[in-house]
């Protein structure tokens, strides 16, 4: 069954606030093998002008992923999640996220289409801080393939 292309443009309610934890930033940075002092050392982050540890650019995906998943598992969308691979990922920041930020994520399905037998969904996540300012935007292209022939889920 193909995806319901009428879902293009649909938005989902904001997620519950997520507080970026100091140790979570360190844990994530270690997991990507990155010893950059701005991710680990408070004094180093403050010397760069930040109030706390800087979250690595790809960190916020751990938060947006959950919000996006809730949207793309919407039964009305008709995307077969068991066959989904991650096709593309993009981040844009107005400022870096730092430990202590409380963020919320709103997901919009920017495009929903079927191309050459594959269903493709582009999910945009608007990431807002506690003041309601948009600090980041992420785009995930998710592809449900007719056959599982590789790719990164």
């Amino acid at each position: 069954m193909a995806v319901n292309t009428e879902y293009a443009g649909r938005s989902y309610p904001a997620s519950a606030p997520y507080e970026i934890g100091l140790e979570k930033v360190r844990e994530f940075a270690t997991a990507i093998g990155d010893a950059n002092p701005a991710y680990h050392d408070l004094a180093a982050a403050r010397a760069l002008g930040y109030p706390s540890l800087v979250a690595p650019p790809t960190f916020v995906f751990t938060v947006t992923f959950a919000a996006t998943r809730a949207a793309i598992e919407d039964p009305g969308l008709g995307l077969d999640y068991s066959r989904v691979v991650h096709g593309e990922q993009r981040f844009a920041y107005t400022r870096p996220l730092v430990a202590g930020d409380r963020i919320t994520v709103s997901t919009t399905l920017e495009s929903v289409r079927s191309v050459a037998g594959n269903d493709m969904v582009t999910a945009r996540c608007d990431v807002l801080d506690e003041a309601g300012d948009q600090v980041a935007t992420t785009w995930s292209v998710l592809v449900a393939r007719g056959t599982a022939d590789g790719g990164n889920a």
Partner: peptide, 20 residues
């Protein structure tokens, strides 16, 4: 890291995107 190691301040990254 190829970018952030070079620039030093990871907060300098405004955009980052890839296709898998």
């Amino acid at each position: 890291r190829v970018v952030t190691d070079w620039v030093g301040d990871p907060g300098a990254v405004r955009e980052y995107g890839v296709r898998f």
